[in-house]
């Protein structure tokens, strides 16, 4: 069952702009039903961590005539929407990240839209729509080629 608005309010009780963040999250999960909000521990680059909400799941990306469910995780900082979400692609074990100008080896997503993020002109819903367009031209993940089972893994 989908997460309700009141559950979201509870999850985001420590967010500085809670009502705004809840509202934008609700419109995203109404449109993209395969994304769901999850409360989890986010570790900052300085090693500190905080309980934050992320939107986890898949977005439909059309690439060369087929639609793929690209798995992403968008972390909403407690200063959202004044700071952009921290976004990652989530490859499964059968996928590899295609690093490039939009994705690094950790799966972190870099987009001009995130770089130039400014409230109120920037919004979660529009960000996802832009991701779908950009990933449709340049997918951030690919399936690994099937490797023969007789080929042992190599360890250095």
């Amino acid at each position: 069952m989908a997460v309700s608005k009141s559950q979201l309010k509870k999850m985001m009780s420590k967010y500085k702009y809670r009502d705004l963040t809840v509202r934008q999250t609700v419109s995203v999960i109404a449109m993209y039903k395969d994304l769901k909000p999850v409360l989890d521990s986010y570790v900052f680059s300085d090693g500190s961590s905080r309980e934050l909400v992320n939107l986890t799941g898949t977005i439909p990306v059309r690439y060369r005539g087929n639609t793929y469910n690209i798995a992403i995780c968008l972390w909403l900082l407690d200063t959202y929407p004044y700071n952009p979400p921290v976004c990652f692609v989530k490859p499964t074990s059968s996928m590899t990240i295609k690093t490039g100008k939009h994705v690094d080896a950790n799966g972190k997503i870099y987009l001009p839209y995130l770089h130039d993020w400014k409230h109120p002109r920037s919004e979660l819903l529009e960000l996802i729509q832009i991701m779908i367009v950009i990933f449709g031209g340049e997918p951030p993940v690919f399936s690994r080629p099937t490797v023969s089972a007789s080929y042992p893994p190599y360890t250095a």
């Binding site: 898949t58 989530k90 997918p139 690919f142 399936s143 080629p145």
Partner: peptide
């Protein structure tokens, strides 16, 4: 029941 959609990705031979 609803476990969400299974992630997929394009084949890498392209």
């Amino acid at each position: 029941l609803n476990g969400g959609t299974i992630p997929t990705a394009p084949p890498s031979h392209t």
